[in-house]
Design a binder for these strands. Structure first.
Lengths: 194, 194
DNA sequence: AAAGAAACTTAAGGTATATTTAGAAATGGG
DNA sequence: CCCATTTCTAAATATACCTTAAGTTTCTTT
């Protein structure tokens, strides 16, 4: 069935009944994206949470010089949204773009809040999901401060070998907080070391 | 009453009945800390969430060179914990230390999970709390990548004037990801600009 | 109040990373 | 399949930030 993946993802922390599963799936909206197409655009308040069923996406924003700053990737079975905008109800500053052709399932913020009220297990799930996210961001922030550019890349490679394969260098460079040129010299060096 | 502050904090997102409030308060453990005393130590799995009723604390860890790396501050009405350790059940790497004499209210992870099952509104509260945290960390990570040291300090000052007043420079320097010496030159420059 | 410890200040020299430029390789559209 | 565009590689120069070190002020303890 089409929604197998997302239901299995939720089942990690919440044991929904068949009826609850149906209810949940009934609010999902399927969206297909071509490579380079935008899922979310800056300017308005982000109203949706997205589950990636297929493909690869990235979140980035443009700084005052117009340069793109990527800070989030997502592939199959990941969740992606603009929590900053959704949480504080401020206009989004982010672009969410497909790096490969992709399929996502969207849930409106309002539907999600309603569902969580009706199904406490679902609120439990998202509480856990966000708790994990905080822990992960904390880790990333630490690494950004503590590690050299080369060390950051080595960790990234170990942790997300798939990202390293599927995502263009310039985006990885930005994600790791360095220029594409410098990233390239580091990468060549790391590859040679094998 | 002693628990006014924490109950008011929770009331921002969860409207607990008097009975639920009592139940919640019954699992709280009060702990007073002297300046420099540790609330959490590295080595074991963190089992508690803490609400700061009074005083100022910081979270830091020691890197391979033994240098302290501060990445989190908290004052009155803030929550503090080691989510990385608590969430993934891995030994903590963090010290949580009182910067000033402090009083915190502790909740055991197990009690908290039980309470959240019994009182869905409480799970709602922590879901919101963590959702805010993710958004905040996201913002910090962006600023760490995008902004120069001076810009980072200016933002910090604007956002947390109280931290700037109460916390020693070396800790702020570490939080902002720079050396105390460099921070000092920046700070003098920023102060002169007024 | 004195002595010691910790925190802050200032400056010189050094290093990791950024910027710029340029060309080569890969990719994609017609 | 070819041309246009994007991505990658490479090297030279520039700079933000670090390291070290020494002096000064502030805090802490007795």
């Amino acid at each position: 069935m089409a929604f197998d993946g997302i239901l299995k993802n939720i089942a990690r922390h919440a044991d929904l009944t068949a009826g609850e599963q149906d209810l949940f799936c009934s609010v999902l909206q399927v969206k297909n994206l071509k490579k380079k197409e935008l899922l979310f655009k800056p300017g308005k308040i982000c109203q949706q949470e997205a589950y990636i069923n297929k493909g690869c996406l990235r979140t980035f924003f443009c700084d005052k010089n117009g340069a793109q700053n990527t800070f989030y990737f997502g592939i199959e079975d990941w969740w992606i949204s603009d929590l900053l905008s959704r949480t504080f109800k401020v206009p989004s500053q982010y672009h969410v773009e497909a790096i490969e052709d992709a399929q996502v399932f969207l849930i409106n913020d309002e539907d999600l809040e309603n569902l969580m009220m009706r199904i406490p297990k679902l609120e439990h799930f998202y509480r856990k999901l966000f708790q994990y996210s905080v822990a992960t961001f904390e880790q990333r922030l630490l690494e950004a401060h503590q590690l050299s550019a080369e060390e950051r890349y080595r960790k990234f490679r170990d942790k997300y070998p798939e990202f390293d394969r599927r995502i263009p260098q310039k985006h990885i460079a930005s994600y790791l907080g360095m220029t594409p040129e410098f990233f390239n010299t580091i990468r060549s060096k790391v590859l040679k070391a094998h």
